[in-house]
């Protein structure tokens, strides 16, 4: 009963979908590419991709490795952005403290929403998270400190740890990259820990996990909070990087967009959400110049993904490679 086109429990490198050595080589290559990327691509665009990639990876932790489809992750992403922007701009927090405050808020909100949502399963879980995040949206819409439609603008970027000047594009890019890598490593650790194995067991067969004596709900809640905190990290970093926290990031359309990124890249694969986030962000960027409205594009991708390739891009590659190696 999980949305992931799941295979039985696998070890660390299989989660990447590739063999041992090839996998490591690819990771090193990807790291080098990320470090060198600002030479070739506009850093602001890369920063946007990294923020969404972390957001999607956090969301994927829940849907891909626990089998819980949250339709309300924008509440953590956008909520943390508001808190970070407000604490930095109005209370004079340093960037690192502001980001910490945003993450703490997202984790707390995740604890509350998760506690309510895990009381229902499957399709209801999706509807409950959607409804709760809509409630969060209305609260932010009405709360005076968010300046409703205007959002919190011109958030000062300041000095990270008192030395790194975030108002310059390159230091900003490498800071965001650092936060992204931190999040990815954390997700990788969670997925490949005994804790992660129990999460996968819950995804594969919840009644059986219960019968083995696991407090399933505690594990689900813990995963929900971790996922929410990481989504918050993505939002908090985005608020600093773009000097803006706005309503767009709390809407259910944003929750939908992160689902699409993950679905397109491959649910339950470590790199899928990153690929998906890059593709969707790039697509929106290039189609913004054409007359095709963004929702039509996003919706069309959804329909295509669901009807044609439910494994996603990375999932499909993994599947092909596996089929070949088993021959």
């Amino acid at each position: 009963m999980s949305i992931a086109t799941s295979t039985p429990l696998k070890t660390a490198n299989d989660a990447l979908g590739i063999g041992h050595l090839v996998g490591r080589a690819l990771i090193v290559l990807a790291l080098l590419a990320l470090i060198a990327a600002p030479l070739a691509v506009y850093p602001v665009f890369l920063i946007k991709i990294l923020c969404f990639a972390l957001f999607a990876a956090a969301f994927n932790l829940l849907v891909g490795y626990v089998g819980l489809l949250s339709f309300g992750h924008a509440a953590f992403f956008g909520g943390a952005a508001y808190i970070t922007a407000h604490t930095v701009k109005e209370w004079g927090f340093t960037p690192e403290l502001g980001i910490l405050a945003g993450v703490a808020f997202a984790a707390t909100l995740g604890l509350v929403m998760g506690f309510l949502a895990i009381r229902r399963q499957g399709i209801y879980f999706a509807m409950v998270t959607l409804a709760l995040s809509q409630m969060v949206y209305f609260v932010f819409l009405q709360a005076p400190f968010t300046h409703s439609e205007d959002g919190i603008q011109s958030v000062p970027q300041g000095l990270l740890f008192g030395i790194i000047d975030l108002s310059k594009p390159l230091p900003l890019y490498y800071t965001v990259l650092g936060a992204f890598l931190l999040g990815m490593v954390l997700i990788w650790r969670v997925v490949n820990s005994p804790f992660g194995n129990i999460l996968a067991a819950i995804r594969e067969n919840e009644p059986r996990a219960i019968s083995l004596g696991y407090e399933v709900n505690r594990y689900k809640l813990a995963a929900f909070v971790i996922s929410a905190a990481l989504a918050g990290l993505a939002g908090a970093v985005k608020a600093i990087a773009f000097q803006l926290a706005s309503l767009v990031d709390v809407t259910w359309q944003m929750s939908g967009e992160v689902i699409l990124m993950t679905l397109l890249g491959g649910i339950g694969t470590l790199l899928g959400p990153v690929v998906g986030a890059a593709l969707v962000t790039a697509m929106e960027h290039y189609f913004a110049a054409t007359s095709i409205p963004a929702p039509v594009l996003i919706g069309g991708c959804f329909v295509a993904c669901v009807m044609l390739f439910r494994r996603g891009i990375v999932g499909e590659i993994r599947h092909r490679l596996k089929a070949r190696s088993s021959r």
């Binding site: 499957g122 999706a126 689902i259 409205p293 929702p295 039509v296 991708c301 959804f302 993904c305 669901v306």
Partner: peptide, 17 residues
């Protein structure tokens, strides 16, 4: 069931757009 939810979500976005 989540796939049909996502499909109808995508259709809703398309039609509204």
């Amino acid at each position: 069931h989540l796939y049909s939810l996502l499909l109808t979500f995508g259709l809703a976005l398309m039609i509204e757009g």
